[in-house]
Structures are given as C-alpha cells and as structure tokens.
C-alpha cells in the first residue's frame, strides 16, 4: 500500500515536471518532430525499400494529417502510404509528447500496428531508458539505474506494445521482414 507521504511527494514531483515541461518551445518541438519524420520516410524511400520504390513496384504517397497533443495543440504532420499491389500500409505519426520517447509513428495495416519510436541508439529495452526509485517513509526500498551508456543519438527503432518491450534496430532486411510479418 502506497503511504500518504509518498503519494504527496509523487504528486508534487509530477507538478514540478509539468512546470518544467511548460518552459519548452512548442514550435521548436513540432519542427524537430517533423524533421525526424521526414528523415524516417527518407530512409524508407532511399535505403530500406529503394529498389522497389525506384522500379515502381512499390508506390509511395505522402499527405498531411492533423494530430492533436494537449501541450502542442493541433498541428499538421505527414502521413505516408505504401502501395504494394492491393496492400496499403499507413505510417501515421502519433506524436512527440509521449512517455519515454520524443516520437512515435505507427505502421497500420488492417487493425494491426507496429510502433516506430525514437530512442537512444544504444537502447534495446525499456529498462535501458527508465530508472526509478521507490521510497517508503523516506527510505529507499527499491532503485534501478540505467544500465547502458547512452550515445545521445536518437534513432528510430520498432517495437510492439507489451509487458516486455524491446526496441529493435531497423535496416533493409528487418524492415522488409517486418512488412511481410505484418501483412501475412
């Protein structure tokens, strides 16, 4: 059972973090996110699926959609569609104000979803990114610490929602395998 002192500390901590977050520049955050999305789409077209895009066997299309995030309001982001025969894959940017990541794009196909998230290049799982400390009556009873040294370089990795989240690197082979697994 969480004691009241801990409850009060957590609530005040949440308020401080919210206040800290409010100092950030929304326009800059959106611009950074859009650039990251553009970089991701460029990787798809120019690296991971390049031969197929070039010879026209896979058609790519981008259109703007509007997404809403509470601290950023409504803003336009590019949604990408890939057409492979009758198969239509949608890459839908979800947002940049998320827990443990500054960016997420969902790949959607017939109700199934794969998530692409921005994480440090060195991260392979949630425990790499998140550290916490639990105190009872001021005494630390449980603590974790980040196990890996971060590169400071954010890259897109893919994952699926679940209790044991792992981030997987993307290259041409893994991206193509991902698409085949999603569609079949």
């Amino acid at each position: 059972m969480v004691d009241f002192k801990n409850f009060v500390e957590q609530a005040n901590k949440a308020k401080e973090e919210e206040a800290k977050a409010k100092k950030f520049d929304p326009a800059e955050r959106i611009a950074t996110f859009k650039k990251r999305i553009a970089d991701f789409y460029a990787k798809i077209d120019n690296e991971w699926l390049q031969p197929y895009i070039n010879d026209g066997s896979i058609r790519s299309e981008v259109q703007d959609i509007t997404i809403t995030e509470e601290s950023l309001g409504d803003y336009a982001v590019p949604m990408k569609k890939l057409f492979i025969g009758d198969i239509v894959l949608k890459f839908v940017p979800v947002g940049t104000i998320l827990i443990a990541t500054p960016g997420r794009i969902d790949l959607e196909y017939k109700g199934r979803t794969i998530m692409f998230v921005l994480v440090d290049e060195a991260a392979t799982s949630a425990s790499d990114l998140i550290s916490y400390e639990i105190k009872i009556n001021g005494e630390v009873v449980e603590r974790t610490s980040q196990k890996k040294k971060f590169s400071g370089n954010l890259v897109w990795k893919f994952t699926e929602k679940g209790m044991r989240v792992r981030y997987q690197s993307i290259d041409a082979e893994s991206f193509q395998r991902l698409i085949m697994g999603l569609v079949q």
């Binding site: 979800v94 998140i130 400390e133 929602k161």
Partner: peptide, 12 residues
C-alpha cells in the same frame, strides 16, 4: 512508481 515503465511510448 512504475508508471513510465508500464506506459512507455504511450500518449496520455
């Protein structure tokens, strides 16, 4: 205390 771990990558 496990909020960020339980709900990582999710929006509010």
């Amino acid at each position: 205390p496990y909020y960020n771990s339980d709900f990582q990558m999710m929006t509010d």
